[in-house]
Structure formats: C-alpha cells, structure tokens
Design a protein around this nucleic acid. Structure first.
Lengths: 349, 349
DNA sequence: CTGAAAGCGCTAACAC
DNA sequence: GTGTTAGCGCTTTCAG
C-alpha cells in the first residue's frame, strides 16, 4: 500500500557523502578522474540502497527513449501470424542485444486518423520505427520525415521513398515458375494475396516472366485472391479447379494460403500432388508439418527482421544515411509438387 | 541533418503570450478557470506550432511510464508461436484502448541473471507486467513485490502467490477424456508438454480422473513428451504406437503437438481418425485447416489475454487488490476423432 | 483568471 | 578529484 518511494541518485549521494555529479560519473564510468576510494564508497552505497537510475530521467535528459517501435497492420489478431511473429522475434532479439526495447503498435484506421504514428516520434515514445505488413495504400508512411528513422520490413512502398530491407520476391516468382514448368506443368493456377502489396506484384512479375519464356499463358481466370488466409486459400483453390479442371498446379503467394489450398483441394477430392501440385512461398515452420509437406520458396524472414533492426539502429546513430537491401531466396522442395500425371503438352523429366 | 529542435511547451507559451501554467492547464483540460479567449489563443498556438507534449517529461513528472510489459520465455522464435501471438494480440488491443503501450521482453537466462525483470519496474520502464508461458521453475517470479503489479497469464506458479487469469485445464482434461471414453476408446496415449508447467499437470489430473472413472488404466508407457512442438508431437505419436500398437486414441496437451502427431501417424501409415483418433487442446486457428480438421478443447485464449490486461490495469490503479480468475473451456468436435474400429472392450455409441 | 517557482531524477558544463 | 549549477519538458502548488 504505502509504496515506499524509489531511491534516487540524491539518496546515494547523501549515503556516500559525495555529490550528485560524483555519483553520476561513477555510474557512467566517466570516472577517469575519480579516486578509487570514492568510487568504492559510491558503489557500496548504490549496492546498499539498491539504487537503479531512472530511465525516465535519463531519457528526458538524453532525448532518447531507448525504444524501437514495431507497427503492424490491423488484421485478425495480427500477432498470432507466424510471419509477423518471426519478424518480431528477430527484431526483438536484435534490439535486446543493443539494449533497446520494443514497443508494439497496431495501425488501425482510428490510430492513423489521430496521427498516432507521428506521435510515436513527436512525443518521444521511440527512436526509430519498423513497419511490417505494409501496402501501397499505406500513404501515411509518407508522413515521416527528417529525424524520424523508419524502415519498411520485407516490403517496399510505391512512390514513397522509404528505407527497406526485403526478400527478392521477383526471383521467388521466377523460381516457383521454373520449378513448376520444369516438372512439366502447363495449366497453372495462381492464388495471390492483397494486390496492393508491392511484393505481391513482384512475385507475380517474376512468375509471369518465366511462364512467358515457357510459352505458357496465364489467363485472368487462372487468378484468384486468397486473401492471405487459410480460408481464402482453400476457397481460391476450389474456385480455380471448378473453373478450369485441367489445372495441374497452383502457385500460392504465401504458405498460409497454400496450406489452405491443399485442404481445399482435398475437400473436393483432389489428391496433392498426384492430381494437383501446390507450391507456396515463405517457408514458414508448419510447412514442414502439413500433409503433404509443402514445397515452397524459402525466404529468410528471420534474417530480414534482424537486418532491418540493425540497419535501423545504424540510421538512428547516423552510421548510415539510407538503407535498401534485398535478400536472396531459394527453393525448398518437399512433397506437394510432382510432375503432372496427364501431361498433355508436358514433358515430365 | 539539422534535426530542428522539437517544440516545447515554452514555445507555445511564448507564441500565445501565456505562461507555462496556463498552457499546461488548457492542454490538460484543467481549464475550468481559464477564459475562453485565452484558451483559444493557446490552442491556436499549439496548432500553429504543431506542439505535442513530451511523454518523457510527463512520465518523469507523473512517475508513470504508461507502458505495460509482456515477458515471454525464451523459445525458438517465441513470437512466432500462435498461442503467444493470440495472447499478445489480445493484450495489445486492450492496452491500446486504455492508452497504454506494450513493451516486449524475452526472459532468457542472461536476462534473468542480470535481474532485468526487476529493472523493468525499478528503472520505471513499465507500470505493470504480464508473464506468458510461465513454468514452476520460474522462481524469479517470486522476486516481484509491493508496488510491482504482475499477472501470470493462462497459468499459475506453484508455491508463488501471484495473481493470474487462466483457463480451466483440469476441466479441459476431463472433457477430452470423456469424449474419448464415450467414443469407446480404451487404449489411450497421452502426449504431454513440459511437466514443469502447472497447467500441464492440471490437464493430466482432469484427464486421469475421468479415465479412472471409466476404469481405464494409463500406464507410464502410454505417456510421451511432445516438447510442445510439432516435431515433438510427431515423434511422440510414433513412439507411442510403436510401443503399444493397440492404442486407438491420443490426447495431446496442445494443438501444435496434436498436429505434429497427426503428421507422424500418417508417416507410419496410420489413418486418422479411422485407426487412431487424435484430440488436441487450445483450438488454435489452424486446427481447422489440418487434415483431418482437429477435434480439440476450445480454450478462450484471446479472452484470457484481454481479461488479464484489464485486471492488470485495475491492479495498477488500485481498483483491485488481487486477481484469481479461471475461465471455462469447451469441446470442439471436428474430424480427428471417431469411435475405434476394433473396439475390444469398447461400446461405440 | 493567470503566473512564478519548485520539483520529478538525471547529466554535463564549468568552477574550484 | 570533486562540487555547484543549469537544464531536459512537464505539472502543480501557491500567490496574486
């Protein structure tokens, strides 16, 4: 009840018969000029009193909060998404190594309307910001300016000149297409995520580039929005095969939708990969445990998060002026893809 | 480059020809006595200058940080776990509604050794703490004391008198056992998580209580540790059936392991649920999308997180002295459980 | 109705 | 080597 008052630097000074300055100098190791006797006296008083400097006061003084913000979009239980979770884990770990702590915010409409994203900096909540799950509609990102270090994580924003660290999704699309084409598939469906996401376009561009090279057409009827969810993926796969039963392979913009697609295909009696191959993108942990284990494009999500955090720290300490990084991706073959059984034009290897 | 200095309350005072006090009074709506002319003058200056009060200074003054901490254990990419993610989403959402922000910390050995969990309060990082994924080994939880509001989320700690909000795992165990027994299963395997987790014991107690009532024995050979992971669940299921091929049903301490178990069973050629039924616990989102969709115990994780946060806020504002809450759970039947095909003693309904 | 001044806990010029 | 003092940006008594 009687919350006894926290001990302050003043108490330490009194207890050790030294001045505030002396105590401060000792504590901050700026004690080149402090006699070791005094140092001992101060340190022992600190110990005895259990003194710990107030971060609030230090921050006010230094004008640095020691916090990094993570801003995620408003989705159903955003943090329960393994993709965001992986990024957050990476960021938290990296930040902690540098004595920074992480603040979590969700950019819902009300939040943005009230300019809470700007308050983050203006009111000194954070020293830098990492934006996850960004789309080309997120025009508020243009609001950030000078002295407000912001990095877009694993994405970019069209027409807004922001720093970013991302995976090479164009290449991811190419790899997926190449894999499917080389297996002999000619009738391919495509489940995409939100088209306002830049990497969604990247992926598609890479994918179509290769299909074209293989002279395979991808008519509009072969595209379906999977809403970046399992449910959406399932529905999309079903719709795709209903519309064109000759489809023998499906590329899904992320693993979540791919896993949903597999479940949807089974529901309508299609065997994976015997009748329909499915390839995802991301290589999340559970891709290994679905049935069949998912062939997918491995994207180094954790590394991207860690790197973005490191770069943000560099931006903050002005070790860096600008950040534009793109990470390599690779193919992880598991069991959800195979050569088509009835390769009409195909030449199964 | 030339980071122009942030505008402070002083600037507003000057600009509006008022004193600091007046500005502060206006801004905090303690302006019962302020003439509306003055208020307008101040407000317009605020607007013109784009002034926003520094939270750092306010916090120093009020001795409240306005932050809530979330402490999670060190696991592989802790935040990429949907269970933690769901809790975090709930907590963040609730906190935001009350103008609190969330700080994320991971309690690894080094962190605890350096007493960073105590620093959280001592150095005024946070006003209250929510601990996730707690085990009975987490003795550091006993370190918290007076004036340091802490709530254990969806767990308890033996021998440490802490506030908590949890689901009724004893009842969850009972429900799972009842479901399996009523389907006619008599040879049942049990995949458990870390035994040092209190709710793990709760679950088992409830489960065994019902089995006993049905006169079914659960020999030590029918227990296997699934490590709370998919891999572990798969390995455990395989081990269980290798050791006793007569097992027709498996209860898994969480959905993650259950999903792993299903994948493991398929790997050794067992059909689910025809040959082996699997029931999980949690009802995470993807339980609906595995094959077959998982029968599981629904635990109101999101509600628990939200409630824990609300209660913590009450603790902080002294609206509440202590918190002990247990939430109801229920059965969600999907397709991973069925009556045993060869019910030796069974009486499939 | 408004303002001067103290103080939250700390750091850092600048004396001595 | 050590201490005095100003100040970070705000809130809040207390005068007037």
């Amino acid at each position: 009840m009687a919350k006894r008052k926290a001990v302050s630097i003043k108490d330490v000074a009194r207890e050790s018969n030294a001045s505030l300055t002396t105590v401060s100098l000792v504590l901050n190791n700026r004690d080149g000029r402090i006699s070791s006797a005094t140092r001992e006296r101060v340190l022992s008083a600190v110990e005895r009193l259990g003194y710990r400097p107030s971060r609030l006061a230090q921050s006010l003084q230094s004008q640095r909060s020691g916090f990094l913000g993570i801003l995620v979009p408003q989705l159903r239980h955003a943090f329960a998404d393994v993709y965001f979770g992986e990024l957050i884990s990476a960021i938290q770990e990296t930040a902690a190594e540098h004595d920074y702590k992480i603040i979590l915010d969700v950019a819902n409409p009300r939040y943005l309307e009230r300019n809470h994203h700007l308050e983050l900096f203006r009111r000194h909540y954070i020293d830098g910001l990492l934006c996850l799950g960004v789309t080309n509609n997120d025009t508020y990102l243009a609001d950030f300016g000078e002295g407000q270090p912001v990095i877009v994580v694993n994405n970019r924003v069209q027409d807004v000149d922001l720093d970013f660290v991302q995976c090479n999704y164009v290449e991811a699309g190419r790899i997926a297409a190449t894999h499917l084409c080389e297996l002999g598939h000619r009738h391919i469906g495509y489940i995409h995520g939100a088209t306002e996401v830049q990497t969604t376009s990247d992926l598609r561009h890479g994918f179509e580039e290769i299909l074209q090279r293989f002279d395979i057409s991808l008519p509009p009827s072969h595209f379906e929005d999977g809403l970046y969810t399992e449910e959406g993926g399932a529905d999309a796969a079903i719709a795709l095969l209903k519309r064109d039963p000759s489809i023998t392979a499906i590329f899904s913009g992320n693993d979540k939708m791919a896993i949903g697609a597999i479940s949807g295909l089974k529901r309508i009696g299609k065997r994976v990969p015997e009748e329909v191959s499915v390839i995802g993108c991301d290589d999340v942990h559970q891709s290994e445990f679905c049935d069949p284990p998912l062939t997918t494009i491995h994207t180094p999500i954790f590394d991207v998060g860690a790197r973005a955090c490191t770069m943000l720290l560099d931006l903050i300490s002005s070790k860096q002026e600008t950040v534009r990084e793109t990470k390599d991706v690779s193919l992880t073959v598991r069991n959800s893809t195979a050569a088509p059984q009835t390769g009409r034009n195909g030449s199964p290897q």
